[in-house]
Design a protein around this nucleic acid. Structure first.
Length: 596
RNA sequence: GGUCCUGUAGCUCAACUGGAUAGAGCAACUGCCUUCUAAGCAGUAGGUUUCAGGUUCGAGUCCUGACAGGAUCACCA
């Protein structure tokens, strides 16, 4: 049942009857009535005064009167200036509530026949994951889950950047200083171990540059000629030539990193359906260059380099293949773009990548469209802003990053300390308590990163950012735990909170109606979050629901309520809120506890 | 310099896509645990939505121009 649509249809009818002026449905829109006014939905009359030939206020009055008598849904109305506030009857809301209550499985809309790939995480294998990656990973996971719920078939992909000069840097450093060290002998997670050598390389490299500069060589020159960088480049050539020893070391070190990443992903509670490796894909795309030349989309310059001219689309000329015939970044991206389609015949392809690559994806997508790809219009860059620290931007080479593993451990520890301080773990086993700390710590962290509009840059202050009160994950989790306690008691004393238990209910309090209305909007929020690829819409909604529930909880009694229909309804309402919170939080990758 | 993104309470963020008196949280202050979990609820205070124009019945939202912050503009990835 879609109540808004029904009202709009009635309004449409009214326009014909009252004003003798037919309108199409998409010319009409409702908005929620502001709190300070009476009503549920508001129809704004101002835009229609020309077609109604009436002043907005008079038109609204006429429309309201018409709806009151001709619409089954509308139980009252009032007009303030040109705003027509419509009230929906309690019995309508109750009908809606009953149908919501019936659903026992997490909301999943019928298939829309669309298949989408969401690529996220996509790490380099030369350093461990940090806070910036976490925003990416939680966003990507949540978006994928939300799109599933909205009726898409979703493939989660991770394109691992496992080759290239940066990987060789770690390898060179390891050869010089590694002395057979392994994650086991060093007692360090594999990704951290490899990251350690990346830092060692960078330090030594900088030192060499300085030495060369001291000898009077320019910085630019020094960067190119330092022995270490030459060695790394040499190693890259050997890797590309498939040199056995080099490939073996590469495999070993990458193996360490993958083991480390897997453990981090597991802690994060995220997963992937498909891994792509750049070592498999980096040669792709050259045939597309050829195709583009033939189609006249690309052109060749004198030195043999191949370009695309996007100046008609407001961009510049862009290189797609070097003069020596080797690939650049975008060459292989064109190749993987096609590969994904060949593998899954996807309608949409979403790239969760930071906003520093806005231009790159703009170019890539325009090229694929110019090449006439069938999926061209389904390409989408979910661009998110950087996570800054109070000290400024995170720089992995300068060690000013917040490490993902460390942060998660700290979050869990903080959750533990906080919970113990509140003395809330009576009757918990050791295992249950630890699970709770993890749920709370991770919930706080994930919610913190997901509640903000992705495209905005955000500030992370290690001391203050993640809290447990107010607009936070734990607040929502707490609301769920509270309801769970109520349901336990209701079951214990035998309250029938199925539909038949509140069959005699006659009316609702304001908070109750407002809660029903919010619960009804869950589906709409899922669709909106999926359409706009913005998980924060769902996060914000869940907070609003929890907040409203806590108001209900404080204002109305449940077990001391004497009217059994009232009591049953309030338990049922609580039950439905808990379900909605649980489902929604699950889409965000956040677990909710039964007790806390 | 060109292009793109952002600018809302002291701080972190909302504002249903142009609607009514711009809302939450944190921090501060005041109440509420003998009643279902106080990680909660209610209240007070906090705003020229960076600035200046424009569009219209109506602008935080749209257009123009400043200002501030950021990103990007490699035969790097």
């Amino acid at each position: 049942m879609n109540i808004e649509n029904q009202i709009l249809v009635d309004i449409q009818k009214a326009f014909e009857v009252l004003f003798n002026h037919p309108v199409s449905l998409d010319e009409l829109a409702l908005q929620p009535t502001r709190k300070e006014f009476e009503g549920n939905y508001t129809f704004v009359m101002f835009p229609y005064s020309k077609m109604t030939k009436k002043a907005p206020e008079a038109g609204a009055e006429a429309l309201g009167a018409y709806l009151l008598t001709h619409s089954d849904i509308i139980s009252g109305y009032n007009v303030v200036k040109g705003f027509l506030n419509l009230s929906v009857s309690d019995s309508q809301w109750l009908d809606i509530f009953r149908s919501l209550l019936e659903n026992t499985d997490p909301l999943k809309l019928p298939s829309n026949g669309q298949r989408v790939m969401v690529e996220y995480s996509s790490p380099n294998t030369n350093k461990p994951l940090h806070l910036g990656h976490m925003r990416n990973i939680f966003l990507g996971y949540a978006l994928a889950e939300i799109m599933k719920a909205a009726g898409y078939e979703v493939i989660k992909a991770n394109l691992i950047n496992d080759r290239g000069i940066h990987i060789c840097k770690s390898m060179v450093a390891y050869l010089h200083h590694g002395q057979e060290e392994t994650p086991e002998t060093a007692g360090i997670k594999g990704d951290h171990l490899v990251g350690k050598y990346y830092v060692i390389f960078d330090k030594a490299y900088k030192k060499e540059i300085q030495q060369l500069m001291d000898q009077g060589i320019s910085e630019e020159q020094a960067k190119k000629e330092a022995p270490l960088i030459l060695e790394a480049q040499q190693m890259l050539r050997k890797w590309e030539a498939n040199d056995a020893e080099t490939v073996s070391l590469w495999k070993t070190m990458n193996g360490w990193v993958y083991a480390g990443f897997e453990s981090t992903y597991r802690k994060m509670g995220v997963d992937f359906d498909r891994y792509y490796y750049e070592s498999d894909t980096y040669l792709l795309g050259k045939d597309i260059v050829e195709e583009g030349l033939q189609k006249g989309v690309f052109f060749k310059k004198e030195n043999g380099s191949v370009w695309v001219d996007l100046s008609d689309e407001g961009l510049d000329e862009k290189l797609v293949l070097r003069g020596d015939g080797t690939s650049v970044y975008i060459t292989q991206d064109m190749g993987t773009c096609d590969l994904k389609y060949a593998d899954y015949k996807i309608n949409k392809s979403v790239y969760v990548v930071g906003n520093e690559q806005d231009y790159h994806f703009d170019v890539l997508f325009k090229i694929m469209r110019k090449l006439g790809r069938p999926y061209g219009d389904g390409l989408f860059h979910l661009s998110y802003g950087m996570v800054d620290l109070p000290s400024g931007k995170m720089k992995s080479r300068e060690g000013t990053v917040v490490d993902a593993d460390e942060l998660m451990a700290e979050m869990v520890a903080t959750a533990e300390a906080h919970t113990k301080e509140l003395g809330k773990i009576d009757g918990f086993s050791e295992k249950e308590a630890h699970l709770l700390y993890e749920q709370l710590g991770m919930g706080a962290l994930k919610y913190f990163l997901l509640k903000v509009d992705p495209k905005k840059r955000m500030l992370f202050n290690p001391q203050e950012s993640i809290e447990f009160q107010g607009n936070t994950g734990p607040f929502i989790q707490y609301s769920h735990a509270r309801i769970s306690a109520i349901l336990r008691k209701a079951d214990q004393i035998g309250v029938d909170y199925t539909q038949s238990g509140f069959g005699q209910l006659t009316g609702m309090a304001d908070v109750e109606q407002s809660l029903v209305k919010m619960l009804f909007e869950y589906e709409k929020k899922i669709v909106q979050a999926a359409d706009e690829m913005t998980p924060s819409i769902l996060a914000q909604y869940l907070y609003d629901v929890a907040k409203e529930y806590n108001r209900f909880y404080a204002e109305l009694p449940i077990f001391s309520e004497k009217d059994s229909s009232q009591q049953a309804f309030r338990v049922a309402l609580s039950f439905q809120v808990a379900k909605t919170i649980r489902w929604g939080m699950q889409l965000l990758g956040i677990d909710v506890p039964e007790r806390m």
